[in-house]
């Protein structure tokens, strides 16, 4: 019984490690390497860089799976123009993000703000990982602490065990 449980667990652990690795690989996969050629003019290199960063991190509301910089959608075009206008008018990144949030909500951010509504989105996977790890450790410790010598059987139980094991061998 002891050995069976111990054998069972590492197989699970290997699966868990593989699954986690696959999940991490998927998470880090670039979402979009393409971007629309921008025809906007900037005074400084910094402004241009801010524009690129913002339009890469904001999501196109219409197409849903591309960022603003990668989308040809009408609303994405308008939002890029707005970002350009706001940068040139001297808005800070925070102000621009707030502008977007007030109109499109958390959805517009690829990295949503940490709020009560987005708590599960941010920490749900971590909570599941911790719960899963706790359960796995509990099972593992229980299996390890199982000591066969502590088990005593009376004659009737020994007989029943014999017949059960015998049945299994025949089956």
């Amino acid at each position: 019984m002891t050995t069976r449980r111990l054998h069972f667990f590492p197989a699970n652990l290997a699966a868990l490690v593989l699954f986690t690795a696959a999940a991490l690989a998927m998470l880090s996969w670039p979402t979009s390497a393409l971007s629309q050629v921008d025809t906007f003019e900037f005074d400084t290199e910094v402004q241009q860089q801010r524009f690129r960063t913002l339009s890469n991190e904001l999501r196109c509301p219409m197409c849903q799976n591309t960022n603003l910089s990668g989308s040809t959608g009408g609303v994405a075009e308008d939002l890029r123009r707005e970002i350009h206008r706001m940068i040139m008018a001297g808005w800070s990144d925070q102000e621009i993000q707030q502008f977007m949030f007030e109109r499109y909500g958390d959805f517009i951010f690829y990295r949503p703000r940490l709020r009560a509504e987005t708590f599960l989105l941010w920490f749900g996977p971590l909570i599941f990982l911790v719960l899963g790890a706790a359960a796995a450790i509990a099972v593992w410790r229980k299996a390890r602490s199982f000591d066969e010598s502590e088990v005593t059987l009376d004659d009737a139980e020994k007989k029943r065990l014999q017949s059960l094991l015998g049945d299994r061998r025949r089956a």
Partner: peptide, 13 residues
């Protein structure tokens, strides 16, 4: 025409 009012309304399309 410009879609600017649409942005204020949070219109997608």
């Amino acid at each position: 025409n410009s879609g600017r009012f649409g942005i204020d309304l949070g219109v997608y399309g």
